[in-house]
């Protein structure tokens, strides 16, 4: 087991960055995952699609170290996430992972720039430095002139681009996006996806994209389909 800093910067393309094997997870009597296996490679954008209740979000939560699977393994580089102590898991999530949810989950009391600066402040940056870097990321996502607005004062598309900036501001190796356009109209959704994909490719960040929308999945390099908590075996990859 190693620290996250030992994840190689120049990856061996044959070794997955993140790999789940035989995941099982139940919520009470409901089996959300049932033997799901999936690999995410360095810099890859992978779409996970499937009907409601197929286990997509639970898979994301297991891969991102948010919940632990009942069975199976989650390996990040050569770190077994499912066996990592909570404190180290929390630290790794902060340094290496970024997460975007359907409804952004921005802090409503904070302005856009303070929302984006928050992960940097948690990592020990000064307030001035954090706000400056947050401003740069907001600019990259086309959120200009709205830095001091609170989430309730922005459109859904703008708020979601702020969420993307917050997920990417720490330079994560993986971004997990759970239905990032689910609450947006098609044009705003397209702007969010273009911003996410463009920035991820530019920075070499891998993206695990959960979506039920084929037009959103088409932004990815590859697609895996979930059904009844497992990956549909044939004819689903490029």
């Amino acid at each position: 087991m190693t620290d996250s800093s030992e994840i190689p910067e120049s990856p061996d393309s044959t070794v997955p960055l993140l790999a789940a094997r035989g995941l099982a997870k139940a919520h009470g009597p409901t089996r959300a995952l049932h033997g799901a296996s999936v690999e995410l490679h360095h810099g890859e954008i992978l779409a996970v699609t499937g009907a409601s209740g197929s286990g997509k979000s639970t898979l994301l939560h297991c891969l991102a170290g948010i919940v632990r699977p009942d069975e199976g393994s989650v390996v990040y580089g050569d770190v077994r996430l499912d066996r990592l102590p909570e404190k180290r898991l929390s630290e790794l999530r902060r340094t290496d992972f970024g997460v975007v949810f359907q409804f952004g989950q921005l802090i409503p009391e904070l302005t856009a720039v303070d929302n984006v600066a928050l992960p940097l402040l948690l990592a020990g940056a000064s307030r001035g430095e954090a706000r400056a870097r947050a401003g740069e990321w907001l600019e990259r996502f086309g959120v200009l002139g709205q830095e001091e607005l609170r989430p309730g004062e922005m459109s859904g598309g703008q708020a979601q681009r702020v969420s993307l900036a917050r997920a990417l501001v720490t330079g994560p190796k993986v971004v997990f996006a759970d239905e990032p356009t689910g609450a947006l109209d098609s044009l705003a959704g397209e702007q969010v996806m273009s911003a996410l994909v463009h920035t991820a490719r530019e920075s070499g960040t891998a993206v695990l994209l959960i979506t039920h929308d084929a037009q959103v999945a088409a932004y990815a390099d590859r697609e895996v389909q979930l059904r009844d908590g497992a990956v549909v075996p044939l004819g689903v990859t490029a």
């Binding site: 994909v197 037009q215 999945a217 932004y219 004819g235 490029a238």
Partner: peptide
Amino acid sequence: AGYLREQRAAHMRRMRELTAVKT
């Protein structure tokens, strides 16, 4: 069912190409 899976994969490939063209 097998045919639909393969056809879906072909459609998704074309959709990825078109998305790359438009973006």
